[in-house]
Write a protein that binds this DNA or RNA. Structure first.
Lengths: 279, 279
DNA sequence: GCATGATTGCACGTACCACGCAAGACTCTG
DNA sequence: CAGAGTCTTGCGTGGTACGTGCAATCATGC
């Protein structure tokens, strides 16, 4: 069409109706974006063309807005529009959980593969067990008992999973529930498999944590489950950052990443009751 | 890597391992679709081209699969791929939280103002109590006991608040914990104030919920707290959407929005032990 | 009142998508 | 064991949405 047609359409009448009343002032950009975000949050889904019509801007502008909101993490684009996006924002979570994301994810994936249909499992609090929980989404006929808010978040929408939380007081730093109430709840439950996290791990001393509340709970968890798995990326092995310890008595399996050195693994391999797995 | 490789990749080796054995038979269509569905549920997001490569079929086939799954409601298409669609299809919490947001927020704000420093409060599950929790962020010297995941999320990072969760099984639709474990935990706790939500509210019958587990827990909560507040926007008053009821025996306070009609409020005002507040 | 920055509409090239068609694979039946 | 029917897949075509550069317009601050 007219290449010189740069005539401002700004004051032209709106395409649909409202012939007499010209638009006094449209929504400003930030307000419009906020409105779009709210529409998506409440309606769940929006369509680009409809937004363009109802807000009286071109689809290009809507696309730009949606791109902005997407980058911001509020929403997710679909083919002709956008939708709400609560649990798609992985990069933020990944960044926050910080170190060794890939390793934790590999460990979590391997552990998830150990869990069979019909199993009841206990998931400790922590980012690694959170990754494990992530890989359980979509599974069915599974009972998950957890004291971790991360795992809880991952599985909150997983309809196929029976999700049981322990009671307790929230440790904000570790996003997990601890204390007498958590232990009380555990006395009413057992599980097929237990997956424990660790701030530090020593072959003789066991699991190292920042507080006795945490170690006490881990000890109890280990006793309430059949098989015990300790998920710890290689940066944790041989470390003792704190002074509270949870000794591991029965047989258990150490799951770590392939970045672990032989020096790190040797003390664990020397133990007869410990199985060592690197992924 | 194949540049213009339109050669049938049918017999190319599988990407991982099994070098010698040529692919005897790829995944069957239903299996492939189930696998795609699970990948989307666990990973949150997939890309058409990657799926095509990893499953060794053309993008067309993947698109067809995704179209099928979309129609089935399992997933949602995005521009170059697909993502999980848990809340778009289902009228669970997403839509419900969309209703009367402003009212719920006003009610939550008012309730938050009732809570003093040093208080211990019980927060029921639900969106309205979630708003209440939202307005407690930043407060200090406060103990919050809750059975709701929404409140838990709001206060997970609130360092100043001692946050205690009840144990229990998660009801995915209401995002709250219920069951014997929740009740067990409550027997170890009391609070100064209790804030209950409601799916429906009747002056005589009490609080209406979808399950007896919920009503049983609400009853117990009411008994474990000093003052009892029921937070219910005006759309809930006089409604009985379900058949499970939690009667309210002692004195309590109804907190609703100013949209409530006199007809709705009259039955409650007639009760001597009930205080009615509109915000 | 003027300059600067943000915002918007338009145009263009690219990528993705839906549909139809024909060949191949699998299953069921006689 | 053979043949027919059904399902599935790969490819081609037309259509649509997408993202971005560019120029004009509007809002804001001095």
């Amino acid at each position: 069409m007219g290449p010189a047609s740069s005539r401002t359409p700004r004051t032209t009448a709106a395409p649909a109706g409202a012939a007499g009343a010209e638009d006094p002032r449209r929504l400003r950009a930030p307000d419009r974006r906020a409105l779009i975000a709210r529409m998506i949050l409440t309606d769940g889904t929006v369509v680009v063309d409809e937004l363009a019509r109802s807000l009286d801007v071109t689809p290009s502008t809507i696309r730009r807005d949606l791109a902005l909101l997407t980058e911001q993490g509020t929403i997710a684009r679909t083919y002709g529009g956008a939708m709400s996006a609560s649990h798609t924002a992985e990069p933020t979570l990944g960044q926050r959980s910080g170190l060794a994301v890939a390793e934790k994810d590999r460990i979590g994936r391997w552990a998830a593969a150990r869990i069979a249909q019909g199993d009841t499992v206990i998931l400790d609090a922590g980012t690694t067990t959170g990754r494990l929980a992530h890989h359980l989404r979509g599974r069915t006929e599974l009972t998950v008992i957890t004291s971790g808010l991360t795992a809880l978040r991952e599985l909150a929408e997983a309809d196929g999973i029976e999700l049981i939380t322990l009671a307790g007081t929230l440790r904000h730093v570790s996003q997990g529930f601890v204390g007498p109430l958590a232990e009380l709840t555990l006395t009413r439950l057992t599980a097929d498999k237990v997956f424990l996290g660790a701030d530090g791990l020593d072959a003789i001393l066991g699991i190292c944590e920042a507080s006795l509340q945490q170690t006490a709970l881990k000890e109890l968890m280990a006793r309430r489950g059949g098989q015990v798995y300790v998920l710890a990326d290689s940066s944790k092995l041989g470390q003792s950052p704190f002074t509270a310890w949870a000794p591991l008595t029965g047989p258990w399996t150490l799951v770590t990443d392939s970045g672990a050195t032989d020096d790190q693994l040797a003390p664990f391999r020397a133990l007869p009751e410990v199985d060592v797995v690197t992924v």
